[in-house]
Design a protein around this nucleic acid. Structure first.
Length: 586
RNA sequence: GCGCCCGUAGCUCAGUCGGAUAGAGCACUGGUUUCCUAAACCAGGGGUCGCAGGUUCGAAUCCUGCCGGGCGUACCA
């Protein structure tokens, strides 16, 4: 690389008025659908959603910057089995209301406590089941030979809930957990519970499959379930509101308009199954409707099914994903679809892609891409959980990160105002969580540690943010010394790069576009963080070796330019592409 | 059993469509503040790239086998 070339590139970047640091847009803009985040209804976002959410967001930002038309799709889990659990949860809320006792709270604790004590667990489950049966039967009536349930208590309760949604807000999540935990607990105990089938005939089913039974009935499209759907809407709205707060906190570019959940495809599901049957691809097998894509083998070497309808008639995520894919190709005109999920879903997506291909739903030029990532581990080397083995809520994790960052700020910079400290703590804490994730190779598991991610040394958010703050500090000092940076940079025609640190920094600055290209091509944010870390290191060396403001007239403009380009590049990378905040002072 | 991912310095990891003495960070050792933020910088030690073959002028990288770990493998997502 000649000096002339290097200087010309730096001057070109400096004079780029489009704020693109001299990086061109693509000549070939595509419609790129990115499916990411996808939290579940009635469950708070937990650490399991973090990676998909922020990696997916980064991918969107990178393709958008390249000039593509990115269509974000938050494929939330609001149909499927959770649906039945939410309804069952509401039923328990109703019964708790009737008894004047929120039994689900204390019983949830006990179910967890007795998890390893089979005898006591069984005793508790029997007690719960017996009360359930009594409550259910007390709410059933028969008139003129017609069998109905929920007319006395559950129906009116749901009507009340629909009109007083704020009252229910706090209760959905614990009761949902209660239902899930109860289901897990009673599995294999051989308990059964009375309910009805879709012909409104009384039947008895295994207790652990009650929520699935409800799901299946609702998916068959019972018109008498209007109330349940109304209540479910409240739960969904509530969950999304909580999620949006977290997206905003994380600086993730998802909004309500990007939400298109599983339920949006519910009316398409029977058609999907029919179409695949007509094409001769879907067959009945062990009561379920399955596609057997070529090349997928099960344990005994037999063909592996891609199940699109369960034996109880309910649809599942395979069906929904097929419907979503048709929508994205047909309505959104996707040229490329990127799915961002954990690596465990690889087989599902391989079979999904194979099925869509066999069905002829894919033009050859449509690219399907499954971007996977590893599990977040605790420092003990096991998947990151709380001490009691539960998923860590994302809201709690982020709060903790900001608090820990606040402590560091207090320690390092006690003289700042409270407001400044809080702002810095937020940028550093949230930034640290995101940066730690981005800087690790997507495909491998990574160990989550507050201590490491909040360290000032090494490839961390605070180190980057500090480097940025130091550049900004030079600018502030320049103003107080009466140096007009804008004027010096505008009039710059020729650079003077003599020191090794200057040249190292300069050469690195002109390679930003290359780093972005690499990161985007493989959907690997760590390529970008590696570049930015190198940049911060090279700047720090330069900062130490080459004084800027006291440099002679011959050197100062060049050094000011290097500072300015460093700041612009770091800010662009951190803010625009990674969604990590920078602060002017720290 | 089969499939996918991983195995690189004491620790955490980059580098993997072949290219020169294999790179960071942490930790460890020593040094640097009359000068723009020391949350920094500089210097140093430390690696048979899991093992064994093969392809190649050249392999951490590609191929085969093995060992070790993780995940998945019919009605959860």
């Amino acid at each position: 690389m000649t000096d002339a070339f290097l200087q010309q590139r730096l001057l070109d970047i400096n004079s780029d008025l489009a704020e693109r640091l001299g990086i061109e847009k693509t000549d070939n803009p595509e419609n790129i659908v990115v499916d990411f985040s996808g939290p579940n209804i009635a469950k708070q976002m937990h650490v399991g959603h973090l990676r998909s959410t922020i990696i997916g967001d980064c991918i969107c930002r990178m393709f958008e910057f390249a000039g593509h038309n990115v269509i974000r799709q938050n494929h939330i889990g609001d149909w499927g089995t959770q649906f039945g659990r939410v309804i069952l949860g509401f039923w328990h809320l109703c019964m708790a209301d009737k008894h004047g006792n929120p039994y689900y709270l204390s019983e949830l604790e006990k179910l967890k406590e007795y998890a390893k004590d089979k005898e006591r667990l069984e005793e508790l489950c029997c007690k719960i089941r017996d009360r359930h049966e009594q409550d259910y039967l007390a709410d059933v009536y028969e008139e003129h030979g017609e069998y109905g349930d929920g007319k006395r208590h559950f129906g009116p309760f749901l009507a009340k809930v629909a009109s007083e949604e704020h009252d229910i807000r706090e209760k959905i999540q614990p009761v949902y957990q209660f239902v899930s935990t109860l289901e897990d607990s009673v599995a294999g105990m051989g308990l059964s519970i009375p309910t009805r089938n879709s012909q409104k005939e009384p039947i008895s089913i295994p207790y652990e499959s009650l929520s699935r039974h409800i799901t299946a009935m609702l998916q068959r499209g019972g018109h008498e379930d209007v109330q349940e759907r109304e209540a479910w809407k409240i739960a969904k709205h509530d969950t999304l509101e909580q999620c949006q707060k977290i997206y905003d906190l994380l600086k993730v570019t998802l909004t309500e308009k990007d939400v298109r959940g599983e339920s949006e495809y519910k009316d398409d599901l029977p058609g999907i199954v029919e179409d695949l049957k007509k094409l001769g691809l879907a067959k009945e097998s062990e009561g379920a409707t399955c596609v057997f894509p070529e090349g997928f083998l099960g344990k005994e070497g037999d063909p592996l099914p891609f199940i699109i309808r369960k034996s109880d008639g309910a649809f599942l995520y395979a069906t929904t994903d097929l419907a979503a894919m048709k929508y994205r190709i047909g309505e959104l005109k996707a040229d490329r679809i990127i799915y961002v999920t954990d690596a465990r879903q690889q087989l599902h997506f391989k079979m999904l892609f194979a099925t869509a291909k066999m069905a002829g739903w894919l033009d050859d030029d449509i690219e399907l891409c499954h971007v996977t990532f590893g599990t977040m581990m605790g420092t003990d080397g096991r998947p990151f959980k709380t001490r009691s083995g539960e998923n860590v809520k994302l809201a709690d994790l982020l709060t903790e990160a900001v608090e820990q960052a606040k402590r560091v700020v207090e320690e390092k910079n006690a003289e700042l105002s409270d407001e400044q400290k809080q702002e810095i703590a937020k940028a550093v804490g949230i930034g640290a969580v995101k940066y730690a994730d981005f800087s690790n190779n997507r495909t491998t598991d990574y160990v989550f540690s507050f201590d490491k991610m909040l360290a000032m040394e090494g490839n961390t958010a605070p180190y980057m943010q500090y480097a940025y703050a130091r550049v900004k500090s030079i600018e502030r000092k320049a103003v107080s010394k009466g140096i007009d940076i804008a004027a010096e940079l505008a009039g710059i025609k020729k650079l003077s790069i003599t020191e090794g640190a200057e040249s190292d920094l300069a050469k690195h600055l002109i390679r930003y576009g290359e780093a972005i290209r690499l990161a985007r091509a493989d959907c690997k944010p760590n390529c970008l963080t590696a570049y930015l870390f190198d940049l911060a290191q090279k700047f720090s060396s330069f900062y130490n070796a080459c004084p800027v403001l006291i440099a002679g007239e011959d050197k100062r403009p060049t050094r000011l330019l290097l500072c300015d380009l460093t700041a612009r590049t770091m800010k662009h990378g951190l803010n625009e592409l990674l969604g990590i905040e920078t602060v002017e002072q720290m």
